[in-house]
């Protein structure tokens, strides 16, 4: 990233953020509300327009982005199976139907996040924790090299939290680059080797022990 700047109208959400996420790193993005954490992920995902700077992403075509759950319409008429199968979009696109190997991966991902037997349920019948696990299953199916997660643990029960954390750890072990926005600093200390502290600008970025104290300051 070089001098990444994002504006919403006149308000500057992100100002001249520069730096590099090392391939295979697991980074927590922390900061106060309105610090531009979600905007940073959206900028990397290419979902918001940059007012300045550039995001250079080698594996742009192999990127998975999970927005905040409030961005997802819980009432939408979609079954759990359809939601997770969307992860294979690149394989079937707008016109073809998902093949047997993709369906097998969907079943495996559903198993991993502990939701088997609920595939035919509409997503409106899932609890918030279950919906979040389903969205993780979609990211698993996407099989991406870069994974961006925006507050994936918000309002999630303890059981779902451990399932989701295990998955994040597994992605890290598989050598994928994982970037997670989160609030719980204890989780950051326990599970995330690198941290980026944001307050519209980048306050600190490095190993968690070194960077995280900037959050308190």
């Amino acid at each position: 990233m070089r001098d990444v700047t994002v504006r919403y109208g006149r308000r500057i959400a992100l100002e001249a953020v520069s730096g590099e996420f090392i391939s295979g790193s697991l980074t927590a993005v922390v900061g106060a509300n309105g610090a531009g954490k979600s905007t940073l992920l959206a900028a990397i995902a290419g979902v918001v327009r940059l007012a300045g700077g550039a995001v250079n992403c080698t594996a742009r075509s192999r990127l998975a982005y999970l927005p905040q759950r409030t961005a997802i319409d819980h009432e939408y008429p979609l079954t759990l199976s359809e939601l997770i199968t969307l992860g294979g979009w690149r394989e079937f696109g707008a016109f073809r139907s998902p093949d047997a190997s993709l369906r097998a991966r969907v079943a495996a991902a559903t198993e991993t996040v502990g939701l088997p037997g609920k595939l035919a349920r509409p997503i409106g019948e899932l609890s918030l924790g279950e919906l979040q696990r389903a969205l993780f299953a979609r990211v698993i199916v996407q099989d991406a090299a870069i994974i961006l997660l925006d507050e994936p643990f918000a309002a999630v029960d303890a059981q779902s939290l451990s399932v989701l954390l295990d998955q994040v750890t597994r992605w890290h072990e598989e050598g994928r680059t994982v970037i997670v926005v989160l609030h719980d600093l204890n989780l950051v200390r326990a599970h995330f080797p690198s941290t980026l502290v944001l307050a519209r600008r980048c306050l600190a970025w490095g190993t968690t022990e070194v960077a995280l104290p900037a959050m308190a300051a």
């Binding site: 290419g46 998975a64 939408y76 690149r90 707008a94 016109f95």
Partner: peptide, 21 residues
């Protein structure tokens, strides 16, 4: 012809954008 992307775009527009569509 465009039913699937139209329906997915209604549900989760960021998904299509992030997937490079």
């Amino acid at each position: 012809a465009l039913y699937r992307p139209l329906a997915v775009g209604a549900f989760d527009p960021a998904f299509l954008l992030a997937a490079g569509i």
